[in-house]
């Protein structure tokens, strides 16, 4: 995927930059210091990272489709059961989509592993 190649290509560039400036000034890319800001940072640049917020495609598509259906269903009579049920479906699907997004965001492999195996070395945490 484009995302992965993008990262691989840019890494050596950043490294080279830091060695060029021996004064070790703060690296200009805030993405390194604030990796969580990356998604928005790179969107305009060369690298494009898929926004973290995107829900699994099938659900997002379903939401959009349901909105279209609802608008169609309401063209005749906006108070009809058909129209109301259609908007209810939009509501339910968008809730499911945001749920799926939250789940995806939470699924850090190390966190998941450590939840089940807190005793292992890789999961040790230290005070200070």
């Amino acid at each position: 995927m484009a995302t992965i190649t993008g990262i691989n290509l840019s890494t050596p560039r950043v490294m080279a930059k830091t060695t060029e400036s021996p004064k070790a000034l703060p690296i200009r890319s805030p993405g390194l210091n604030n990796p969580w800001k990356r998604a928005s940072l790179f969107r305009s640049g060369r690298m494009y990272m898929q926004p973290l917020r995107a829900a699994p495609d099938s659900i997002s598509e379903k939401v959009e489709e349901s909105i279209k259906n609802a608008e169609e269903a309401c063209e005749g009579d906006p108070a009809s059961g058909e129209c109301v049920a259609a908007w209810d479906e939009v509501e339910e699907l968008s809730a499911a989509a945001s749920h799926a997004r939250d789940k995806k965001k939470d699924s850090d492999p190390l966190e998941t592993y450590c939840k089940d195996n807190p005793e292992t070395d890789e999961c040790r945490t230290y005070e200070d």
Partner: peptide
Amino acid sequence: DTVWRASKASIEAR
């Protein structure tokens, strides 16, 4: 997930 028109319509319909 929902565009402006959709959210308004869905709140009103329900």
